[in-house]
Design a protein around this nucleic acid. Structure first.
Lengths: 147, 147
DNA sequence: TCTAAAAAGACAAAAAAGGTCTAATAGGTG
DNA sequence: CACCTATTAGACCTTTTTTGTCTTTTTAGA
């Protein structure tokens, strides 16, 4: 349970890719897609969404491309994930749209709220900058040899 | 993101229903279904699964029905949820089946592990007995304090 | 043996995930 | 301006998962 979708994973990979580029440099969809192993058209959608939401900046035409709209150290993992997957809501009753087991004072409800709060706290506590951190840590890639 | 499926919700409701019955009493599928607002045939499948897993005991024929196989105070919410939804794995890379962003030392990985651990701890820390407890106990608190 | 239950398994509709394709739009450049 | 390049928009499609239903079989008791 509680799996991130492929789209979510792609989104994180793409953002990390952008975060690793030297400031100001623009990346093309195709470039990101190939490097991160993401279907190109699908990635296109994801980036468009990030752009609409303001997490990513885009430029059209020759010399165009994508870049992070903010400094990686000011973007949390929570933002990235929620932008793509929607708010963290482990249980429908937290949305207010239903009663999870029909009693007014549902205790299960509380448990899920706790789970959500913890999850949000963890995801909000880590930034893309930290995650992308200079891979002096050695990137020896098995499949997609990248520079 | 991270939503419990309807099946998961039904499962919790059904288990809570059983937990509230006087010890030794058997309940019929139809009875549970109606009382908890669950489609009967669907619930049937859920109960069958619980039975196979050993969380619920079933008896056929006249006078048959279902009951919890253990004391409610010895069944955790984690068990119930995992029995139906599978293990708590917020990210595929935790399963070992893929690399979430292809670097050997993936830091995102660590974050998801933290999320999983916290979630598991919370769900394992609550028993069905506590959740089913007679509602006299009056849950006052907003933040999650449970007397 | 008759009846009341659960068990098993095939089937199916609906929704979500995962992805592709084409046309439109905007920005540079000669 | 004409042309090339890259994103944007949106229609479309396939597969998988969810959410069920229905029918037949098995088991147990009276």
């Amino acid at each position: 349970m509680m799996e991130l979708t492929r789209k979510g994973e792609y989104a994180i990979r793409a953002i990390l890719y952008l975060a690793r580029q030297p400031g100001g440099k623009l990346s093309l969809v195709g470039e990101i897609a190939e490097s991160a192993g993401i279907p190109r058209s699908f990635l296109s959608k994801i980036l468009q969404h990030f752009t609409r939401v303001g997490l990513v900046a885009s430029f059209r035409g020759m010399g165009g491309g994508f870049s992070l709209a903010r400094d990686p150290s000011r973007v949390t993992l929570l933002e990235v994930v929620e932008a793509i997957e929607g708010p963290v809501l482990p249980n429908r009753c937290l949305t207010g749209e239903g009663t999870c087991e029909r009693d007014g004072a549902c205790r299960v409800h509380e448990v899920w709220r706790k789970v959500r709060n913890e999850t949000v706290a963890i995801l909000a506590g880590v930034t893309i900058g930290e995650l992308a951190g200079s891979s002096e840590e050695h990137v020896v890639d098995a499949a997609g040899k990248r520079r």
